[in-house]
Design a protein around this nucleic acid. Sequence first.
DNA 1: ATGAAAGCGCTAACAG
DNA 2: CTGTTAGCGCTTTCAT
Lengths: 316, 316
Amino acid sequence: MANINEIARLAGVSVSTVSRVLNHHKYVSEEKRAAVQKIIDEMNYTPNRNAVDLIRGETKKIGVIIPYTNNQAFDQLLHGVLNRSVEKDYAIIVLPTKYNPDKEIEHLFMLKNKLLDAIIITSRANPWEDILPFTEYGSVISCEYTGHPEIGCSYMDRYASYLEVFQLLKDKGHRNIAFTTARGTESTSTRQTIAAYENVFGKLDRAYQQSDCFRFEDGYAAGQRLLSLDPRPTAVYANGDEVAGGIFKYAKSVGLDIPADLVIIGQENQPVGVGLDLSSLDHQLVKVGEQAFDLAMAKSKAKVETPYKLILRSSI
Amino acid sequence: MANINEIARLAGVSVSTVSRVLNHHKYVSEEKRAAVQKIIDEMNYTPNRNAVDLIRGETKKIGVIIPYTNNQAFDQLLHGVLNRSVEKDYAIIVLPTKYNPDKEIEHLFMLKNKLLDAIIITSRANPWEDILPFTEYGSVISCEYTGHPEIGCSYMDRYASYLEVFQLLKDKGHRNIAFTTARGTESTSTRQTIAAYENVFGKLDRAYQQSDCFRFEDGYAAGQRLLSLDPRPTAVYANGDEVAGGIFKYAKSVGLDIPADLVIIGQENQPVGVGLDLSSLDHQLVKVGEQAFDLAMAKSKAKVETPYKLILRSSI
DNA sequence: ATGAAAGCGCTAACAG
DNA sequence: CTGTTAGCGCTTTCAT
């Protein structure tokens, strides 16, 4: 395909003039500008962005590290990021990790490779110490709060939100509460859930926590296990509405009434929760994602909190 | 940051030798290789992939054109693409269009700009004639069948699947059937839905079709309208399980029994459908996405069909 | 206002 | 086996 040299030759000008036309510089005579534009149109020429990026040293590309792409919570974050990227004309590269630490580091190297201007970490598998070195090569934004000053954060106060849920359940008279989490205690949100629980109800009996819950089926299985405990929980907090939906389905299948026999609260206000009329702790992840993009683009290291909402429906 | 010249200087060799070490060429003496590697490690050097891409003329990046990113169907396709991209070490760039034809063309230009090796179109807003010219610059894969030989296709036989659904409903004795679609007749799948309907039931009364259905709320509103028709439909086919969920919720709210008073069939086997035990026409979009990636990577122009599955639950 | 020339960081003939 | 050299396609001083 044609390149800038050919355009210059055909238009009878130098490459610098073509470059000036391309980049809308002033100080180009109208005649030359027109002549160059004519050739550009004739040749159907477009600059090679790769070459432009190389010389400019920036790519207008932002990576988003995401453990699971078939997960509503991460999809909401990604959706928020994409919302803004379209307006701002940035390209978004999705970087799935399945929480594999090596894969995550491999993705972070794209920053060093000059393939990315910034990276947004929706959830991480590596300790911050292993991530911090990469801030030297580009902006790193986290969707989880961290005090590290090198890292910009667009986050919500998970701990406070969990506290509110557990406190509400306590106020309603519940004493046997179960909950589900995605990962185990290697994850910040799991630790925060446990801390909030223990703040309200005291020491947790680990039998009442079910890890590895991501999808509907996981919720169903969790319901099966948790609802056969003695004493049976009268309320369960699920780390997602899909999981809550699975618990709901199992509970119904064994004849339990919601909410008389079992209160269910889900998370992230997803369609399945709306459909089953489940209460949901909405962390407003779309907004968090949008904010994360803005921080990334601005290379800001600010810490920005987005408020959560507790949506009460008939399941409580 | 250090570049290849500096590494060469420090290691006391030429840049070509460094390049050879970097690319694991043979014919590099073990001593030089070691010397170069030592400097690379010391300097914590990584090649600038932008420069590599520029000279190689390929980017190992594939774009995915997606109308809506908060939509389960497209997310399934994207999920499939990402599944394979991680294995094959390709970067995936998400290109949202909201069915804006200009935005779509803008994205296609990334192929011409040498920013992308291939583009996967999950759904399009432009006629094929406007898309075809871009096949000159890279591989274009469609998730909808088209006879154009320049376009590789990973698709499912939508028409046959719709036909099966409507035939099933007819066999079960239904005569008044309503259905929802995403867009209007500018969309292939809408046209195919109508064609399949008319093949089975004859001329469609347009009142029984509801367009612009994407999310749960749209389904609820559609239910409201469709279920007040006279005669009231005894079955409704929804273009997604979220939409089906909305219809379900409205139907329940006015005291209808599912399936006695109303049969509901959704699409794509999504969590909300599982939760509400709705039957669903599963086009296996994850597989379609995986296949699309394989075609894109191989620069294949093959037409590959993925079979659909009709999942029957209690809503029929 | 315009052009020559020096890169951006890397790869790959080519010669030796 | 190794180095020299000519690019990849573009931007940006620096003169004029």
